[in-house]
Amino acid sequence: MVAREQFQLDLKSIKDEIIQLAMLTEDALIKAVDALYNQDITLANQIIANDKLVDKRELDINNKAVLLIAKQQPVAKDLRRLIIALKITTDLERMGDHAKNIAEATIELGEHYLLTVHPAVKEMRDIAIEMVRVAINAIKYEDISVARKLSKMDDSMDELYETIIREMLEETATNPEKVQYVMQMAFSARYIERFADHITNIGESILFLVKGESFDLN
């Protein structure tokens, strides 16, 4: 096999691993919000433990990308592909961290805490999951029209986040004894909002890869 063909196979392998990492972060967020709603401390601890797998996958992908840059000295779009791979894996690792943070909020509240999770938290989670799937397609096909869809989805996320924060502040004003509950709900909503921001960063990375120009989807 000639060197160029091997290089293209290596690029495809990195892309496939990035998509698998994105799916891991999606699964982590789904389970993290489920743990919050169900006050499932066992599941929350499992999510925290599994975050080490996300960290390892990020490191493995980054090492492969850096090695390819060093060995092949790519130029133009191939170089952009590898630089973007490094950026995307960083965003995915941070998305995993935000899912872990939600799990930690669940543990902070405890399984005996009498709480009702704001319904918009699950709505935010559902939007974030749809954004991950859109981003995966943008990565897979290097499709800028798909990547641009993330901007409007992120706007919906921001609106829900603002609604939750406003209502949580009102809850604190009328029920000061619920400060701990309000804090953890606000934190959890913020973690999902930040999770989505990293997905828009991925969309921007795809736009840069294809166009060679910087774009702002936030």
Rank of each mutant, 00 (worst) to 15 (best):
A35E: 03
Q8I: 06
E213M: 07
T116G: 13
I102L: 11
L115I: 15
L115P: 00
R166M: 07
Q180D: 15
N50Y: 09
H118S: 01
V146Y: 10
D197H: 05
K122Q: 13
I18R: 01
M157N: 07
E123Y: 09
S151L: 10
Q20W: 08
R125P: 03
Y141W: 12
E130V: 04
D34M: 13
T200N: 10
T25R: 00
E104D: 11
I129L: 13
V121C: 05
N101H: 14
S145R: 12
Q39D: 09
Y141K: 14
G203Q: 05
F195P: 00
I107N: 07
D60R: 03
A22T: 08
Y161I: 02
D155M: 06
V75I: 14
D158H: 09
D143A: 07
A3Q: 10
I41M: 13
V182I: 11
K87N: 09
Y141C: 08
K122A: 09
I88H: 04
L207Q: 06
A173V: 09
I48G: 01
Q8K: 13
E108M: 12
D154N: 14
A103K: 01
G110V: 09
L209H: 08
T106W: 12
Q180C: 01
S13E: 10
A28L: 13
D27C: 01
G203R: 02
A138K: 07
E193N: 04
A103F: 11
I102F: 09
L59R: 03
